[in-house]
């Protein structure tokens, strides 16, 4: 088990090193997210809506869209020069590669959220007392689930030729339950006092299911 975790950590830190060295994925994802924030907050101004009611869904749509862009490239650098084969032989257990990539994607999502959430809140001028703890828990569990689905689908799409648009097409239907849960949970976090944690349990179950699926199926996905 420690051996397994050690390998996950090794692959993960290797990915981070490459990412921070080349910066190509991180920068484009963050810039894309910033533009989404701008476009959405600006268009909502034009609609004369009560911003407090649309805060949660729009936030999560922004995160969902930027995540599909960011996670589309997680397995790409393993595909160049067939590095994946050397990595498969080295890892022994395929799923350690999956979880390393998952943590990489999760880190990317957190970085994006770190910039998007405050900025979006400022832009929409959201002002209401809220349950910060529940909000953060939702953000954590939501990103966790999103990174799980994204990593799994990306490991599928990277093996196909026309993989550019395939990730969102395959991912969005799977993300529907997650999207409902995070939006509802964010909503109840924002309405301080009436906050219910019910959706958090749903998110935990969802996240667990999508941890178990790759544990079983990932050997079949990465078969070469």
């Amino acid at each position: 088990m420690t051996e397994y975790l050690r390998k996950i950590r090794l692959i993960y830190s290797k990915d981070l090193k490459i990412e921070f060295r080349t910066m190509n994925n991180l920068v484009s994802t963050v810039v894309f997210a910033l533009m989404l924030v701008f476009i959405f907050s600006f268009s909502l101004q034009l609609a004369d809506l009560d911003l407090n009611t649309v805060y949660a869904p729009v936030l999560w749509v922004i995160i969902l869209f930027s995540s599909t862009l960011g996670m589309d490239r997680a397995f790409l650098r393993e595909k160049e020069n067939d590095v994946i084969e050397a990595l498969l032989l080295a890892s022994g257990e395929c799923s350690s590669i999956f979880f390393a990539k998952f943590f990489g994607n999760l880190t990317l999502l957190f970085l994006v959220e770190l910039i998007v959430v405050p900025l979006y809140t400022v832009f929409t001028g959201y002002s209401s007392s809220s349950n910060i703890l529940l909000f953060l828990a939702t953000l954590l569990l939501g990103s966790w689930g999103l990174a799980l689905i994204g990593t799994m689908i990306n490991s599928i799409t990277v093996q196909l030729r026309s993989s550019r648009v395939l990730l969102p097409i395959l991912m969005f239907p799977l993300a529907v339950p997650l999207l409902i849960a995070v939006i509802e949970s964010t909503n109840s976090a924002l309405k301080a006092g009436s906050g219910s944690e019910g959706w958090l349990y749903f998110l935990i179950i969802f996240d667990l299911i999508f941890v178990i699926i790759p544990l079983i199926l990932f050997d079949y996905i990465l078969e070469l």
Binding site: M152, I156, Q159, L160, R161, S162, S163, L166, L170, P173, L174, V176, P177, I180, A181, F202, F206, I209, I213, L217, Y220, I221, E223
Partner: peptide, 29 residues
């Protein structure tokens, strides 16, 4: 989107995930 063994295997995996997803969708809604 693809061809050969790769496509068959990968769509089989998606077929399984999609089926597991149905109850999740239903109960969340």
């Amino acid at each position: 989107g693809g061809e050969g063994e790769n496509r068959q295997r990968l769509s089989a995996i998606y077929g399984i995930i999609a089926f597991i997803n149905v109850p999740l969708v239903f109960f969340s809604i």
